[in-house]
Design a protein around this nucleic acid. Structure first.
Lengths: 87, 87
DNA sequence: CTATATTTGTGCGTATGTATG
DNA sequence: ACATACATACGCACAAATATA
């Protein structure tokens, strides 16, 4: 069976669960500053959600200053000392 | 302080208050025929309501024939002589 | 410059679940 | 039960930005 990284029936909504998974990967150093996150399309496939849901997850990370998005390119891991979330 | 255009505690429900505001803007000529209304997203931000509520307001105008909606594009001000609201 | 593919941005249609009066 | 409202989610379509051939 496929390992479902998220549980749609959990009290925590899928977009927050996805945000938590990605946040963990960033803080673990699995995704380094300057490196791109998976595209929205890849996130929808990996987590089995709609694009809107993947985008909501990315929006959470963006608000925390963990990542930044470049239109037409992708979303990238921010420097640990970036302004918004930063320190 | 921010001017709250609508009052959630008024007897008139928010979606009708929003409909009234938009109707006034159309009849005042603030929004001309053929021109797009604010998107649902913009309405949610402007009036501080959920998307469903903004949509309910637009539905009111649509029933009155004041506006028409094109899926994926937006909602537009109808011609003054349109059928539904007519004459 | 043109064409194409990829990715993000925007916008509407719809459905479900929850909460309140 | 019903109307209203919010939060979340899935789907679809097209536009804009970017990169590459």
């Amino acid at each position: 069976m496929a390992a479902s990284e998220i549980d749609p029936r959990a009290p925590e909504p899928p977009y927050r669960q996805i945000a938590a998974v990605l946040t963990a990967e960033i803080e673990r150093g699995d995704l380094l500053p300057g490196r791109p996150l998976p595209s929205e399309k890849e996130l929808t496939e990996r987590f089995g959600v709609a694009r809107n849901t993947a985008r909501s997850a990315l929006a959470v990370l963006r608000e925390r200053g963990l990542v930044f998005t470049v239109s037409g390119r992708g979303t990238y891991v921010a420097e640990p000392s970036e302004p918004a979330g930063g320190q």
